[in-house]
Structures are given as structure tokens and as C-alpha cells.
Design a binder for these strands. Structure first.
Lengths: 141, 141
DNA sequence: AAATATAATGAGTATATACCCATAATATGA
DNA sequence: TCATATTATGGGTATATACTCATTATATTT
């Protein structure tokens, strides 16, 4: 049995893990992880979305988002209110969340720039293009 | 505040998540997820390694591996024995684990091939190269 | 040989992820 | 309007991940 070819999935998983730890470290002075930073950013950009909207924007499971949002709430970075439709929750940045986003933004820019330099402009662009391809893959299995 | 540039990390995370779900589905008839398949494969290739060796090979945290291995043990795919050095655990495929690896291998080959076709040979190679670059990044932060 | 250092692993804790089902609220149709 | 369908979210459960600390076993040094 040959079992030693490179698995697209495994290498993507470990690269994702590696780069996550780099960004997490870069943001650690701001007290947030990169996923939390991304959430804050989207909540800001989407102007107090509900869970459904956020999960659609991030292509992520609603229950995942719900749990992650509650962590941000515990951290006092967001506040959660019920909307007019009482099923929905409206997610807003607190002042602390807004400040954290602004500060973390600087750290994010730094590490993003460093990665781009390490990788080079060409590979950077290729990476984005290929990952976009992957995200739009629809396989009938 | 501009906050809308593409984050290398976020796109890698969501691509990883996406491709993981594709491989997981492809392997679901074999009762394993892609991470578990990868573990079985390494245990086979490394001929009953211990946790340290496995975690070094996979660039993964030992405690993560330990937990994942115990899931495989619960599934009767691997057995765990103490080595001569009684601190170590020796991880072996059971018969069931060996058969599962062989069968899952076929499903893995199919999905791997489909992804390669979707992506095209050139992008496939570029992806591997770029991800290797990313994995060897060492940033002083 | 005894004291100390090192090494391998497990357990506690925490985040991130997704599946399925339950519940409550709203919308729709008869 | 009332019964039914749909929608939004929460909770249960499970895997994957990593950090820190505790424990136990081996190695080293005196």
C-alpha cells in the first residue's frame, strides 16, 4: 500500500494552523485571537448584524458563530440584544470592542505585511486565487 | 477605519475548513474523518510510533495528538501499549485499523484526484509550494 | 547510590468548529 | 383567526486544536 502522497487537505490544515498561530501571537497584546478579530471586524463592517447574517458572510455554521459570539460577549467586546424580531439577536460592538478592533488592526496590518513580504507579491496573489478556487469547489461525492 | 482587506489567515482558515469537510464527506463511508485517516496513515508508515514521534512528524501538539489517538483507540482502530521505556506509549494499528486504512485509502485517492482535476495541475503545484513556504515562515514578532 | 535534571505523557482548561434536535417566534394559508 | 409551516437561535454532543501544569519514569551528576 502506497500511502505517502501529499494530501491537499492535510497540508491546508497544517498551513492554516501554522498561520493562525502566527496571527494569534501578533494579536496577543490586544487580547484577541485572529478569529475573534475577524468577528469584530465583520460586526463593525456589517453594522450590528444578527447571527444569520454573520454566519452567511463568514460561510460558517450558525452554532459555531453563536458560541464564538458569546465568548466575545463574556470578554465585554460585544453586546447582544434582541431585535424587533424577537428570535433574532443583534450583535453590536461595545466601546471596548471598538477600541480593541482599532488597536488590533495595527497589529494585524503589521503581520499581514510581513507575511506578504516573506511570500512575495506573486505567490501572495496566486495563493488568494487558488484558495478562492478551492472555496468554490462543489463536488458530487 | 479601513478593515476590509483580505486576511491571509482568514482565507486559509476557511479554505482549510471547506476542504476538510469535502474530505470528511468523502471518507464518511469508512467511518473516519480526514484527520483520523491521516493519523492512521502515519501510524502505519512510522510502524507503531510513540506520541512524541508522531507529533514531531505531524508538527502538532502532543496533547492534541494524545487526545486524537484516544479517540481512535475508542473506535478500536488503534491499540496503545507502554514501550520498554514505560513513559512512552506505543501506538499500533489494530486489524480493524489496518483494514479501515486500506479501504479509506481508495476514497481518499478519489477525492484527491477530483480536487486535482478541479484545480488543475499548475495551481495544484503552486498551492503545495506556497503552503510549504508558509509552513517554514519564522517571524520574530 | 542518592539527588537532581530531563523527558514522555495525561489532565485541566479554553477556543474553534459543525452536526442534530428543541424551542420559541413569526409568517402563511385555509 | 387558528392551524401549520418556516425561521432564528440555543443546547447537546463530538472532534480538533494548543497551552500550562502535574506526574511518573528515565538519565545524569556528584
Amino acid at each position: 500500500m502506497k500511502t505517502n502522497e501529499l494530501c491537499n487537505c492535510s497540508i491546508l490544515r497544517s498551513s492554516s494552523s501554522k498561520i493562525t498561530s502566527i496571527y494569534d501571537k501578533a494579536l496577543s497584546n490586544n487580547g484577541v485571537k485572529v478569529m475573534q478579530y475577524a468577528l469584530l471586524k465583520y460586526i463593525y463592517l456589517m453594522k450590528s448584524p444578527n447571527l444569520n447574517e454573520l454566519s452567511a458572510a463568514l460561510y460558517q455554521d450558525r452554532s459555531t458563530l453563536g458560541r464564538n459570539i458569546r465568548i466575545l460577549e463574556r470578554m465585554k467586546l460585544v453586546s447582544i440584544n434582541t431585535g424587533k424580531d424577537k428570535r433574532q439577536i443583534q450583535i453590536m460592538l461595545t466601546n471596548h470592542g471598538t477600541v480593541t478592533l482599532q488597536e488590533a488592526r495595527k497589529a494585524w496590518e503589521l503581520v499581514q505585511k510581513k507575511i506578504e513580504i516573506k511570500l512575495g507579491k506573486k505567490k501572495q496573489e496566486q495563493l488568494i486565487e487558488i484558495l478562492n478556487d478551492i472555496q468554490s469547489i462543489e463536488l458530487k461525492l
